[in-house]
Design a protein around this nucleic acid. Structure first.
Lengths: 226, 226
DNA sequence: AGTCTTTTTCACGATTCTGAACGAAATTTA
DNA sequence: TAAATTTCGTTCAGAATCGTGAAAAAGACT
Protein backbone atom coordinates (compact mmCIF):
# COMPACT_ATOMS: atom_id res chain seq x y z
CA UNK A 1 0.00 0.00 0.00
CA UNK A 2 1.41 3.36 -1.07
CA UNK A 3 0.85 6.34 1.15
CA UNK A 4 1.67 9.95 0.42
CA UNK A 5 2.14 12.11 3.49
CA UNK A 6 2.02 15.86 2.94
CA UNK A 7 3.22 17.43 6.16
CA UNK A 8 5.65 20.27 6.72
CA UNK A 9 6.65 19.55 10.30
CA UNK A 10 9.51 17.20 9.66
CA UNK A 11 9.42 15.42 13.01
CA UNK A 12 5.71 14.69 12.67
CA UNK A 13 6.25 13.57 9.09
CA UNK A 14 9.01 11.16 9.89
CA UNK A 15 7.09 9.87 12.91
CA UNK A 16 4.18 9.00 10.62
CA UNK A 17 6.45 7.57 7.96
CA UNK A 18 8.22 5.32 10.39
CA UNK A 19 5.03 4.08 11.95
CA UNK A 20 3.32 3.33 8.66
CA UNK A 21 6.39 1.62 7.30
CA UNK A 22 6.47 -0.62 10.33
CA UNK A 23 3.04 -1.72 9.23
CA UNK A 24 4.21 -2.71 5.80
CA UNK A 25 3.27 0.41 3.91
CA UNK A 26 5.36 2.33 1.44
CA UNK A 27 5.49 5.94 2.46
CA UNK A 28 6.50 9.00 0.49
CA UNK A 29 6.90 12.36 2.16
CA UNK A 30 6.22 15.79 0.75
CA UNK A 31 6.99 18.84 2.84
CA UNK A 32 4.71 21.19 0.95
CA UNK A 33 1.62 21.14 -1.18
CA UNK A 34 3.22 21.73 -4.55
CA UNK A 35 5.63 18.86 -4.07
CA UNK A 36 2.75 16.67 -3.03
CA UNK A 37 0.71 17.55 -6.07
CA UNK A 38 3.54 16.85 -8.47
CA UNK A 39 4.25 13.52 -6.79
CA UNK A 40 0.60 12.65 -7.28
CA UNK A 41 0.96 13.24 -10.97
CA UNK A 42 3.86 10.88 -11.18
CA UNK A 43 2.67 7.96 -9.16
CA UNK A 44 -0.45 6.40 -7.87
CA UNK A 45 -1.10 6.33 -4.14
CA UNK A 46 -3.67 4.46 -2.15
CA UNK A 47 -4.16 7.03 0.56
CA UNK A 48 -3.07 10.62 1.06
CA UNK A 49 -2.39 11.97 4.54
CA UNK A 50 -2.63 15.72 4.36
CA UNK A 51 -1.88 18.34 6.97
CA UNK A 52 -4.14 21.37 6.93
CA UNK A 53 -1.44 23.76 7.96
CA UNK A 54 1.17 23.94 5.26
CA UNK A 55 3.45 26.70 4.01
CA UNK A 56 2.18 28.61 0.97
CA UNK A 57 -0.81 26.57 -0.20
CA UNK A 58 -2.88 25.24 2.68
CA UNK A 59 -4.22 21.72 2.99
CA UNK A 60 -7.77 22.51 1.94
CA UNK A 61 -6.55 24.09 -1.24
CA UNK A 62 -4.32 21.11 -1.92
CA UNK A 63 -7.24 18.78 -1.34
CA UNK A 64 -9.40 20.81 -3.64
CA UNK A 65 -6.81 20.68 -6.38
CA UNK A 66 -6.37 16.96 -5.99
CA UNK A 67 -10.03 16.57 -6.77
CA UNK A 68 -10.71 19.29 -9.28
CA UNK A 69 -7.42 19.59 -11.09
CA UNK A 70 -5.80 16.17 -10.96
CA UNK A 71 -9.20 14.49 -10.84
CA UNK A 72 -7.98 11.87 -8.43
CA UNK A 73 -10.31 9.96 -6.19
CA UNK A 74 -7.56 8.85 -3.88
CA UNK A 75 -8.90 9.05 -0.33
CA UNK A 76 -7.59 11.96 1.70
CA UNK A 77 -7.13 11.95 5.46
CA UNK A 78 -6.79 15.47 6.78
CA UNK A 79 -4.71 16.26 9.81
CA UNK A 80 -5.88 19.28 11.67
CA UNK A 81 -4.85 21.08 14.80
CA UNK A 82 -8.16 22.84 15.00
CA UNK A 83 -10.95 20.44 15.71
CA UNK A 84 -13.65 23.05 15.49
CA UNK A 85 -16.70 22.04 13.57
CA UNK A 86 -16.58 24.72 10.93
CA UNK A 87 -13.04 23.96 9.94
CA UNK A 88 -13.79 20.30 9.60
CA UNK A 89 -16.91 20.79 7.62
CA UNK A 90 -14.86 22.92 5.29
CA UNK A 91 -12.48 20.01 4.89
CA UNK A 92 -15.24 17.66 3.88
CA UNK A 93 -16.51 20.20 1.41
CA UNK A 94 -13.13 20.28 -0.27
CA UNK A 95 -13.31 16.57 -0.77
CA UNK A 96 -11.52 15.13 2.24
CA UNK A 97 -12.68 11.67 3.24
CA UNK A 98 -11.77 11.72 6.89
CA UNK A 99 -9.98 13.88 9.37
CA UNK A 100 -7.93 13.47 12.48
CA UNK A 101 -7.32 16.13 15.10
CA UNK A 102 -3.80 16.75 16.31
CA UNK A 103 -2.42 15.55 18.60
CA UNK A 104 -3.40 11.99 17.81
CA UNK A 105 -2.26 8.54 18.82
CA UNK A 106 -0.51 6.74 16.03
CA UNK A 107 -2.96 3.85 16.30
CA UNK A 108 -5.72 6.25 15.40
CA UNK A 109 -3.96 7.30 12.27
CA UNK A 110 -3.20 3.74 11.27
CA UNK A 111 -6.78 2.63 11.67
CA UNK A 112 -8.08 5.48 9.64
CA UNK A 113 -5.60 5.00 6.85
CA UNK A 114 -6.51 1.33 6.66
CA UNK A 115 -10.20 2.10 6.74
CA UNK A 116 -9.89 4.62 3.93
CA UNK A 117 -7.95 2.20 1.80
CA UNK A 118 -10.47 -0.48 2.51
CA UNK A 119 -13.39 1.73 1.61
CA UNK A 120 -11.68 2.84 -1.56
CA UNK A 121 -10.81 -0.64 -2.72
CA UNK A 122 -14.41 -1.62 -2.50
CA UNK A 123 -15.50 1.33 -4.51
CA UNK A 124 -13.00 1.53 -7.30
CA UNK A 125 -11.68 -1.78 -8.46
CA UNK A 126 -9.02 -0.41 -10.72
CA UNK A 127 -7.88 2.99 -11.72
CA UNK A 128 -7.46 2.45 -15.38
CA UNK A 129 -4.20 4.22 -15.89
CA UNK A 130 -1.19 2.69 -17.55
CA UNK A 131 2.21 4.14 -16.93
CA UNK A 132 5.55 3.61 -18.56
CA UNK A 133 8.45 5.83 -17.76
CA UNK A 134 7.05 9.33 -18.15
CA UNK A 135 4.27 8.19 -20.42
CA UNK A 136 0.85 8.00 -18.90
CA UNK A 137 -2.18 6.51 -20.54
CA UNK A 138 -5.63 7.12 -19.14
CA UNK A 139 -7.71 4.30 -20.52
CA UNK A 140 -10.98 5.87 -19.55
CA UNK A 141 -10.33 9.18 -21.13
CA UNK A 142 -8.25 7.59 -23.87
CA UNK A 143 -5.76 10.30 -23.20
CA UNK A 144 -2.01 10.04 -23.33
CA UNK A 145 0.53 12.36 -21.80
CA UNK A 146 4.25 12.32 -21.82
CA UNK A 147 6.04 14.28 -19.14
CA UNK A 148 2.71 15.91 -18.40
CA UNK A 149 2.21 17.10 -21.97
CA UNK A 150 -0.84 15.82 -23.77
CA UNK A 151 -0.23 13.80 -26.89
CA UNK A 152 -3.12 13.44 -29.26
CA UNK A 153 -3.38 10.09 -30.93
CA UNK A 154 -5.79 8.71 -33.47
CA UNK A 155 -7.64 5.64 -32.34
CA UNK A 156 -5.38 3.23 -34.20
CA UNK A 157 -2.31 4.90 -32.82
CA UNK A 158 -3.82 4.77 -29.37
CA UNK A 159 -4.58 1.07 -29.59
CA UNK A 160 -1.10 0.35 -30.78
CA UNK A 161 0.44 2.25 -27.89
CA UNK A 162 -1.89 0.54 -25.47
CA UNK A 163 -0.64 -2.80 -26.70
CA UNK A 164 2.92 -1.69 -26.25
CA UNK A 165 2.24 -0.41 -22.77
CA UNK A 166 0.59 -3.63 -21.76
CA UNK A 167 3.69 -5.49 -22.89
CA UNK A 168 6.57 -3.31 -21.78
CA UNK A 169 10.17 -4.47 -22.00
CA UNK A 170 9.18 -7.29 -24.25
CA UNK A 171 9.87 -7.77 -27.92
CA UNK A 172 6.65 -7.82 -29.89
CA UNK A 173 6.55 -9.21 -33.39
CA UNK A 174 4.71 -7.60 -36.25
CA UNK A 175 2.38 -10.56 -36.35
CA UNK A 176 1.45 -10.15 -32.72
CA UNK A 177 0.75 -6.52 -33.31
CA UNK A 178 -1.35 -7.24 -36.38
CA UNK A 179 -3.35 -9.79 -34.45
CA UNK A 180 -3.91 -7.69 -31.38
CA UNK A 181 -4.27 -4.22 -32.78
CA UNK A 182 -5.66 -4.86 -36.23
CA UNK A 183 -7.42 -8.10 -35.45
CA UNK A 184 -5.86 -9.77 -38.46
CA UNK A 185 -4.42 -13.21 -38.00
CA UNK A 186 -2.93 -13.91 -41.33
CA UNK A 187 -0.05 -12.27 -43.02
CA UNK A 188 -1.31 -9.78 -45.47
CA UNK A 189 1.85 -8.54 -47.11
CA UNK A 190 1.59 -5.09 -45.69
CA UNK A 191 3.73 -2.71 -43.72
CA UNK A 192 1.00 -0.91 -41.83
CA UNK A 193 2.63 -1.80 -38.60
CA UNK A 194 5.87 -0.14 -39.62
CA UNK A 195 3.98 2.90 -40.71
CA UNK A 196 2.10 3.17 -37.45
CA UNK A 197 5.11 2.59 -35.31
CA UNK A 198 6.58 5.44 -37.23
CA UNK A 199 3.57 7.64 -36.51
CA UNK A 200 3.84 6.80 -32.84
CA UNK A 201 7.48 7.62 -32.77
CA UNK A 202 6.82 10.95 -34.38
CA UNK A 203 4.20 11.93 -31.88
CA UNK A 204 5.76 10.31 -28.88
CA UNK A 205 9.45 10.91 -29.31
CA UNK A 206 9.77 14.16 -31.16
CA UNK A 207 10.31 17.00 -28.73
CA UNK A 208 11.48 14.47 -26.19
CA UNK A 209 14.92 13.21 -25.47
CA UNK A 210 14.48 9.57 -24.75
CA UNK A 211 13.40 7.13 -27.40
CA UNK A 212 11.05 4.51 -26.06
CA UNK A 213 10.06 2.33 -29.00
CA UNK A 214 13.07 0.47 -30.29
CA UNK A 215 13.19 -1.87 -33.23
CA UNK A 216 14.73 -5.27 -32.90
CA UNK A 217 15.77 -6.14 -36.38
CA UNK A 218 14.27 -9.34 -37.66
CA UNK A 219 12.03 -9.70 -34.61
CA UNK A 220 9.84 -6.73 -34.03
CA UNK A 221 9.66 -3.83 -31.64
CA UNK A 222 10.15 -3.28 -27.96
CA UNK A 223 8.96 -0.62 -25.58
CA UNK A 224 11.91 0.07 -23.38
CA UNK A 225 13.18 3.00 -21.38
CA UNK A 226 16.44 3.91 -23.04
CA UNK B 1 -31.57 16.45 13.89
CA UNK B 2 -32.52 13.17 15.58
CA UNK B 3 -29.85 11.14 17.27
CA UNK B 4 -30.15 7.70 18.77
CA UNK B 5 -27.59 6.90 21.44
CA UNK B 6 -27.20 3.24 22.34
CA UNK B 7 -25.06 3.15 25.46
CA UNK B 8 -25.46 1.14 28.64
CA UNK B 9 -23.37 3.24 31.01
CA UNK B 10 -26.01 5.64 32.17
CA UNK B 11 -23.74 8.47 33.19
CA UNK B 12 -21.97 8.43 29.83
CA UNK B 13 -25.32 8.24 28.08
CA UNK B 14 -26.80 11.22 29.83
CA UNK B 15 -23.58 13.17 29.40
CA UNK B 16 -23.84 12.67 25.65
CA UNK B 17 -27.54 13.41 25.63
CA UNK B 18 -27.12 16.64 27.49
CA UNK B 19 -24.29 17.81 25.31
CA UNK B 20 -26.00 17.05 22.03
CA UNK B 21 -29.21 18.66 23.20
CA UNK B 22 -27.31 21.81 24.03
CA UNK B 23 -26.38 21.84 20.38
CA UNK B 24 -29.95 21.72 19.24
CA UNK B 25 -30.27 18.01 18.61
CA UNK B 26 -33.04 15.70 19.64
CA UNK B 27 -31.62 12.74 21.49
CA UNK B 28 -33.13 9.39 22.34
CA UNK B 29 -31.38 6.95 24.65
CA UNK B 30 -31.37 3.17 24.57
CA UNK B 31 -29.57 1.24 27.27
CA UNK B 32 -29.20 -1.95 25.29
CA UNK B 33 -29.08 -3.18 21.72
CA UNK B 34 -32.54 -4.71 21.51
CA UNK B 35 -34.18 -1.51 22.68
CA UNK B 36 -32.12 0.42 20.19
CA UNK B 37 -33.12 -1.82 17.32
CA UNK B 38 -36.80 -1.59 18.09
CA UNK B 39 -36.58 2.19 18.38
CA UNK B 40 -34.99 2.23 14.94
CA UNK B 41 -37.96 0.40 13.56
CA UNK B 42 -40.34 2.95 14.96
CA UNK B 43 -38.65 6.16 14.04
CA UNK B 44 -36.11 7.58 11.67
CA UNK B 45 -32.86 8.90 13.04
CA UNK B 46 -30.18 10.97 11.37
CA UNK B 47 -27.25 9.47 13.21
CA UNK B 48 -26.75 6.54 15.56
CA UNK B 49 -24.15 6.67 18.32
CA UNK B 50 -23.39 3.12 19.31
CA UNK B 51 -21.25 1.78 22.11
CA UNK B 52 -19.34 -1.39 21.34
CA UNK B 53 -19.64 -2.77 24.82
CA UNK B 54 -23.25 -3.49 25.57
CA UNK B 55 -25.00 -6.12 27.67
CA UNK B 56 -26.25 -9.20 25.78
CA UNK B 57 -25.81 -8.24 22.16
CA UNK B 58 -22.61 -6.30 21.51
CA UNK B 59 -22.28 -3.18 19.42
CA UNK B 60 -20.87 -4.85 16.32
CA UNK B 61 -23.75 -7.24 16.22
CA UNK B 62 -26.20 -4.38 16.63
CA UNK B 63 -24.50 -2.52 13.80
CA UNK B 64 -24.59 -5.56 11.63
CA UNK B 65 -28.31 -6.03 12.25
CA UNK B 66 -29.01 -2.39 11.53
CA UNK B 67 -27.53 -2.90 8.09
CA UNK B 68 -28.52 -6.44 7.22
CA UNK B 69 -31.80 -6.83 9.02
CA UNK B 70 -33.35 -3.39 9.17
CA UNK B 71 -31.54 -2.37 5.99
CA UNK B 72 -30.96 1.14 7.27
CA UNK B 73 -28.23 3.34 5.91
CA UNK B 74 -28.33 5.65 8.89
CA UNK B 75 -24.73 6.56 9.69
CA UNK B 76 -23.33 4.82 12.73
CA UNK B 77 -20.66 6.26 15.02
CA UNK B 78 -19.11 3.56 17.13
CA UNK B 79 -17.80 4.26 20.61
CA UNK B 80 -15.05 1.94 21.62
CA UNK B 81 -12.80 1.56 24.58
CA UNK B 82 -10.44 -0.60 22.60
CA UNK B 83 -8.73 1.40 19.95
CA UNK B 84 -6.77 -1.53 18.63
CA UNK B 85 -6.65 -1.82 14.90
CA UNK B 86 -8.31 -5.17 14.54
CA UNK B 87 -11.30 -4.24 16.59
CA UNK B 88 -11.86 -1.13 14.60
CA UNK B 89 -11.46 -2.73 11.24
CA UNK B 90 -14.04 -5.20 12.42
CA UNK B 91 -16.30 -2.28 13.17
CA UNK B 92 -15.98 -0.89 9.68
CA UNK B 93 -16.66 -4.32 8.27
CA UNK B 94 -19.93 -4.46 10.15
CA UNK B 95 -20.96 -1.25 8.50
CA UNK B 96 -19.94 1.43 10.95
CA UNK B 97 -19.20 4.80 9.37
CA UNK B 98 -16.87 6.23 11.96
CA UNK B 99 -15.57 5.43 15.38
CA UNK B 100 -14.38 7.26 18.43
CA UNK B 101 -12.14 5.84 21.11
CA UNK B 102 -13.09 6.30 24.73
CA UNK B 103 -12.38 8.42 26.55
CA UNK B 104 -13.13 11.25 24.19
CA UNK B 105 -13.69 14.97 24.44
CA UNK B 106 -17.28 15.91 23.81
CA UNK B 107 -16.24 18.26 21.01
CA UNK B 108 -14.85 15.30 19.12
CA UNK B 109 -18.13 13.49 19.36
CA UNK B 110 -20.08 16.52 18.29
CA UNK B 111 -17.92 17.13 15.26
CA UNK B 112 -18.16 13.55 14.16
CA UNK B 113 -21.88 13.38 14.55
CA UNK B 114 -22.26 16.53 12.51
CA UNK B 115 -19.86 15.26 9.89
CA UNK B 116 -21.72 11.98 9.56
CA UNK B 117 -25.02 13.75 9.20
CA UNK B 118 -23.57 16.06 6.66
CA UNK B 119 -22.02 13.27 4.63
CA UNK B 120 -25.25 11.38 4.69
CA UNK B 121 -27.29 14.34 3.57
CA UNK B 122 -24.96 14.92 0.67
CA UNK B 123 -25.25 11.34 -0.39
CA UNK B 124 -28.99 11.30 -0.32
CA UNK B 125 -29.03 14.58 -2.15
CA UNK B 126 -26.70 13.44 -4.89
CA UNK B 127 -28.75 10.37 -5.33
CA UNK B 128 -31.22 12.39 -7.29
CA UNK B 129 -29.05 15.19 -8.55
CA UNK B 130 -26.17 14.75 -10.93
CA UNK B 131 -23.67 17.50 -11.38
CA UNK B 132 -20.97 18.06 -13.90
CA UNK B 133 -19.19 21.35 -14.10
CA UNK B 134 -22.01 23.88 -14.21
CA UNK B 135 -24.54 21.39 -15.48
CA UNK B 136 -27.03 20.12 -12.99
CA UNK B 137 -29.47 17.31 -13.58
CA UNK B 138 -32.35 16.72 -11.23
CA UNK B 139 -33.29 13.13 -11.81
CA UNK B 140 -36.53 13.37 -9.92
CA UNK B 141 -37.80 16.36 -11.78
CA UNK B 142 -36.03 15.29 -14.95
CA UNK B 143 -34.84 18.84 -15.20
CA UNK B 144 -31.53 20.08 -16.44
CA UNK B 145 -29.91 23.43 -15.87
CA UNK B 146 -26.67 24.87 -17.02
CA UNK B 147 -25.25 27.81 -15.10
CA UNK B 148 -28.64 28.08 -13.46
CA UNK B 149 -30.48 28.38 -16.76
CA UNK B 150 -33.04 25.71 -17.49
CA UNK B 151 -32.49 23.57 -20.53
CA UNK B 152 -35.43 21.68 -21.90
CA UNK B 153 -34.64 18.27 -23.23
CA UNK B 154 -36.73 15.62 -24.88
CA UNK B 155 -36.75 12.32 -23.08
CA UNK B 156 -34.26 10.72 -25.40
CA UNK B 157 -31.97 13.68 -25.10
CA UNK B 158 -32.38 13.56 -21.34
CA UNK B 159 -31.50 9.88 -21.15
CA UNK B 160 -28.48 10.42 -23.30
CA UNK B 161 -27.24 13.25 -21.11
CA UNK B 162 -27.91 11.19 -18.02
CA UNK B 163 -25.71 8.45 -19.40
CA UNK B 164 -22.98 10.95 -20.11
CA UNK B 165 -23.23 12.43 -16.65
CA UNK B 166 -23.02 9.05 -15.04
CA UNK B 167 -19.81 8.41 -16.95
CA UNK B 168 -17.97 11.70 -16.85
CA UNK B 169 -14.41 12.01 -18.10
CA UNK B 170 -14.66 8.70 -19.83
CA UNK B 171 -14.77 7.93 -23.49
CA UNK B 172 -18.03 6.27 -24.38
CA UNK B 173 -18.40 4.38 -27.62
CA UNK B 174 -21.39 4.59 -29.88
CA UNK B 175 -22.16 0.99 -29.10
CA UNK B 176 -22.23 1.62 -25.37
CA UNK B 177 -24.57 4.51 -25.92
CA UNK B 178 -26.83 2.50 -28.17
CA UNK B 179 -26.99 -0.26 -25.61
CA UNK B 180 -27.60 1.95 -22.64
CA UNK B 181 -29.76 4.69 -24.04
CA UNK B 182 -31.55 2.98 -26.89
CA UNK B 183 -31.43 -0.52 -25.49
CA UNK B 184 -30.11 -1.90 -28.76
CA UNK B 185 -27.32 -4.38 -28.56
CA UNK B 186 -26.57 -5.02 -32.16
CA UNK B 187 -25.19 -2.70 -34.72
CA UNK B 188 -27.96 -1.37 -36.81
CA UNK B 189 -26.12 0.70 -39.33
CA UNK B 190 -27.45 3.97 -38.09
CA UNK B 191 -26.03 7.22 -36.88
CA UNK B 192 -28.80 8.19 -34.46
CA UNK B 193 -26.26 8.57 -31.74
CA UNK B 194 -24.33 11.13 -33.72
CA UNK B 195 -27.50 13.00 -34.40
CA UNK B 196 -28.55 13.06 -30.78
CA UNK B 197 -25.17 14.11 -29.57
CA UNK B 198 -25.54 16.91 -31.99
CA UNK B 199 -28.94 17.83 -30.55
CA UNK B 200 -27.49 17.85 -27.07
CA UNK B 201 -24.67 20.04 -28.15
CA UNK B 202 -27.05 22.49 -29.67
CA UNK B 203 -29.14 22.78 -26.55
CA UNK B 204 -26.34 22.46 -24.06
CA UNK B 205 -23.50 24.37 -25.61
CA UNK B 206 -25.06 27.10 -27.65
CA UNK B 207 -25.17 30.31 -25.64
CA UNK B 208 -22.43 28.92 -23.46
CA UNK B 209 -18.73 29.26 -23.71
CA UNK B 210 -17.39 25.93 -22.71
CA UNK B 211 -17.96 22.85 -24.79
CA UNK B 212 -18.54 19.79 -22.67
CA UNK B 213 -19.21 16.93 -25.07
CA UNK B 214 -16.17 16.22 -27.14
CA UNK B 215 -15.82 13.65 -29.87
CA UNK B 216 -12.92 11.29 -29.85
CA UNK B 217 -12.54 10.26 -33.43
CA UNK B 218 -12.75 6.55 -33.96
CA UNK B 219 -13.73 5.91 -30.37
CA UNK B 220 -16.78 7.80 -29.34
CA UNK B 221 -17.58 10.76 -27.16
CA UNK B 222 -16.48 12.09 -23.84
CA UNK B 223 -18.04 14.43 -21.33
CA UNK B 224 -15.20 16.59 -20.20
CA UNK B 225 -14.83 20.06 -18.79
CA UNK B 226 -12.87 22.06 -21.27
C1' DA C 1 -55.41 17.76 -37.75
C1' DG C 2 -51.52 19.67 -35.70
C1' DT C 3 -47.58 19.84 -32.83
C1' DC C 4 -43.73 17.84 -30.86
C1' DT C 5 -40.49 14.16 -30.75
C1' DT C 6 -37.82 10.67 -32.80
C1' DT C 7 -35.73 8.35 -36.54
C1' DT C 8 -33.71 8.02 -40.91
C1' DT C 9 -31.30 9.56 -44.90
C1' DC C 10 -28.11 12.18 -47.44
C1' DA C 11 -24.06 14.78 -48.72
C1' DC C 12 -20.00 17.25 -47.88
C1' DG C 13 -15.74 17.84 -45.62
C1' DA C 14 -12.31 16.19 -42.59
C1' DT C 15 -9.73 12.74 -40.72
C1' DT C 16 -7.69 8.42 -40.82
C1' DC C 17 -5.98 4.31 -43.02
C1' DT C 18 -3.39 1.76 -46.23
C1' DG C 19 -0.31 0.12 -49.78
C1' DA C 20 3.41 1.29 -52.74
C1' DA C 21 7.79 3.11 -53.60
C1' DC C 22 12.41 4.01 -52.46
C1' DG C 23 16.44 4.95 -49.84
C1' DA C 24 18.84 3.65 -45.57
C1' DA C 25 20.39 0.36 -42.44
C1' DA C 26 21.42 -4.11 -40.97
C1' DT C 27 22.51 -8.79 -41.90
C1' DT C 28 24.04 -12.56 -44.58
C1' DT C 29 26.67 -14.51 -48.19
C1' DA C 30 30.43 -14.75 -51.23
C1' DT D 1 35.98 -6.73 -47.34
C1' DA D 2 32.63 -6.31 -50.80
C1' DA D 3 28.43 -7.55 -52.69
C1' DA D 4 23.95 -9.34 -52.22
C1' DT D 5 19.99 -9.76 -49.61
C1' DT D 6 16.89 -8.79 -46.24
C1' DT D 7 14.78 -5.66 -43.19
C1' DC D 8 13.44 -1.15 -41.82
C1' DG D 9 12.14 4.03 -42.01
C1' DT D 10 9.92 7.48 -44.34
C1' DT D 11 6.98 9.79 -47.50
C1' DC D 12 2.98 10.23 -50.27
C1' DA D 13 -1.36 9.96 -52.60
C1' DG D 14 -5.54 7.62 -53.16
C1' DA D 15 -9.07 5.03 -50.67
C1' DA D 16 -11.91 4.30 -46.98
C1' DT D 17 -14.02 5.71 -43.02
C1' DC D 18 -16.00 8.91 -39.91
C1' DG D 19 -18.29 13.26 -38.16
C1' DT D 20 -21.41 16.78 -38.91
C1' DG D 21 -25.38 19.41 -40.02
C1' DA D 22 -29.51 19.82 -42.47
C1' DA D 23 -33.62 18.21 -43.99
C1' DA D 24 -37.08 14.94 -44.77
C1' DA D 25 -39.83 11.09 -43.03
C1' DA D 26 -42.05 8.56 -39.48
C1' DG D 27 -44.12 8.20 -35.16
C1' DA D 28 -46.36 9.80 -30.75
C1' DC D 29 -49.28 12.54 -28.37
C1' DT D 30 -52.96 16.03 -27.77
Amino acid sequence: MNILVIEDEKNVASFIKKGLEENGMIVTLAYDGETGLSLLQEQEYNVIVLDVILPQVNGWEVCNRIRKQLRLKTPVLMLTALSSTDNLVKGFEQGADDYLAKPFKFQELLVRVKALDRRNRNQVATQSVLRFDDIEMNMEQKMVTRAGKEIKLTSREYNLLEFFMKNPNKVISRMEILENVWGVNFDLGTNVVDVYVNYLRNKLEKNFEKKVIQTVVGMGYILRAN
